[in-house]
Structure formats: C-alpha cells, structure tokens
C-alpha cells in the first residue's frame, strides 16, 4: 500500500465510521445475538439457556406456526401477482399520451404514501359489514355483502384487495422503465399489424423485465412481513386466527408470550426463506430478464 493509498484509506474509513459503529451495534451484534437466542430458551427475565435445536424442532409440530405460514403464503400468492398485474396495467395506461396525465399519476400514487395505521382505519370503515361503503354498493346490486372482517373466510381476501390500493410505488417504477422502451419498437409492430395485447406481451413485458424482477423481489419481501394492517384492523389474530400472519405470530411470541428464543428462530427461518426466494427469482431472471444495452 502506498502512502497515498494509506492516506485515502484513513480518510475513507473516517467518513464511513458512523456506519461502521452503527453496523457493529445495530447490525452485527443483534444478528449474532439473534442467532444465539434462536438456540436458547429465553424469556428476557432470565438469562438465555441453550437448548440446541429445540426451537426449530418445535416449529415443525406447532400448529399455530403452520397456520401463520398458510395465511402468509395465501396472502403473498394472491397479493403479489394481483399487485404486479394491476400496477403494470395502470403504468401502461399512464404511459399513453393523454391529457391530465400528471393528475392521474398523482391520484394513483397518493394512496401508497398514506400512513398504514390510517389506511387500516379507512378500510375498517369501508369494509364494515353493516355500514360499510362496499356492502352498500353490493346491496345496490340486490345482493348481500359478507362480513368482510368478521367472517374468517373473507378476512384474507379483504386484506389482499385493500392492499392493492397502495401499488403506487410499483407503478412509478414500472413507469420509469416504460419510458425507456424505444418508441420505434411499437411503431414497427404497428406496421406489422400487431394488436395492443400482442405488443404488451411481446414488447412491453420483455423490455421492462428488470423492473418486473425488481418489483417482484420487493413484493415478496414485503408480503412475507405483512404486519401493520392485519394487526390494526383485526387486533392481531382475527377470527379463528385467519389474520395471524407470520410477522404477527412472531411478534406475539416475542412480546406477548415472551418466547424470545422461539421468535428468533422464526425470524431466522423467515430470513432464510427470503434469501432463498430472492436467489430463486434471481436465477429465473437470468434466463428471462432482458437487460437493455445501456442498462
């Protein structure tokens, strides 16, 4: 290392020192401690006691754990594709040259920044079984709407449907990608007589596949950690545990039952699943995602 390099190293490390300190205290230590606790019986009142892989083995036979896994997978499987497709359609529409485009963009984006607790209150009111706006609209059709938040069959669909309202961030990322698709591709497709549907599937989707990949990964990470809306709207587990999502179950174990070791083990399982899914999606994307020449 030359003197100059050493000098730069000192300066560089100096500048990033806040991160180094923070990483040690709020990063490495909690990560290591969490992994250690996951092999312990720990209730915060007493010192953690090593129990080997007991927490992980307990998970396998814990029916509540599997309910929370089922609920979370259900939520992810429906809400991620629904959100992606809807966001893509809206982004394609917003990408057309129409009057008042910026107004439309604002209207579609705004919900995504509304505080989640506020959002939960709004949906509680709109999906209210007796007085809610949705059931009123359904009654206009001569039908009777369900108890969206009281009937265990409808709780998760309600959360999926209402979650779609906040796809603004996904839309903006799709829009940015759409604006980079060369116009000439569509023009030559028009000349060849390709229908809008064919153009969407064969030009748009491949050209913006990096954005789809990015939104998919973000979507997975978000959906598997869904917490605030079910927690606030259903005061935790919901009717017959129908809204007991993984993150809520984890929170309950940690802070309600003080099964902190078990909670940490659950968190590590979640972490590993997220890493594996991200890795899987990335591997898939290598085959299917098209990165443009300048990307």
């Amino acid at each position: 290392m030359t003197r100059g390099e050493r000098h730069n190293l000192l300066k560089g490390v100096g500048f990033i020192s806040p991160w180094i300190i923070g990483f040690a205290i709020f990063g490495i230590y909690p990560l290591a401690a969490s992994l250690y606790y996951s092999f312990c019986d720990y209730d915060i009142l007493n010192e953690p006691a090593l129990v080997g892989t007991l927490n992980y083995r307990e998970m396998v036979g814990d029916s509540v754990f599997w309910i929370s896994v089922y609920n979370t997978v259900y939520f992810a499987v429906f809400s991620i594709p629904l959100g992606l497709i809807l966001a893509l359609l809206i982004a394609v529409l917003l990408n057309q040259k129409v009057m008042g485009r910026s107004v439309f963009r604002t209207v579609y984006f705004l919900p995504s920044i509304v505080p989640l607790v506020g959002v939960s209150m709004i949906w509680l009111w709109i999906f209210n079984g007796d007085l809610g706006l949705i059931n009123h609209a359904i009654s206009l059709l001569g039908l009777k709407g369900p108890g969206w938040l009281t009937d265990e069959q409808w709780v998760k669909p309600t959360l999926v449907l209402s979650g779609v309202w906040q796809v603004g961030g996904t839309i903006v990322i799709f829009l940015a990608a759409l604006q980079d698709v060369p116009r000439s591709l569509y023009e030559s497709a028009d000349i060849d007589g390709a229908s809008p549907r064919v153009q969407l599937l064969h030009i748009t989707v491949p050209m913006i596949s990096p954005a789809i990949y990015f939104n998919l990964v973000i979507g997975i990470i978000g959906a598997l950690q869904e917490f605030v809306r079910p927690y606030v709207m259903l005061d935790g587990p919901g009717p017959n545990r129908s809204a007991l999502f993984y993150a809520i179950n984890l929170y309950d174990n940690a802070f309600r039952y003080l099964n902190m070791g078990y909670a940490c083990a659950m968190a590590w399982v979640l972490f590993v699943v997220i890493v594996l899914l991200t890795w899987g999606v990335t591997a898939l994307s290598r085959k299917h995602v098209h990165y443009g020449g300048d990307g």
Binding site: F26, G27, Y29, P30, L31, A33, S34, Y37, I221, L224, Q225, A247, L250, Y251, A254, M260, A263, C264, M266, A267, W268, L270, F271, I274
Partner: peptide, 9 residues
C-alpha cells in the same frame, strides 16, 4: 436482513 431478525436483541 428483515427487521424481525434483529428485533429481539
């Protein structure tokens, strides 16, 4: 790293 992993420590 998901927040729940570091939440307890």
């Amino acid at each position: 790293v998901p927040f729940p992993v570091v939440m307890v420590p």
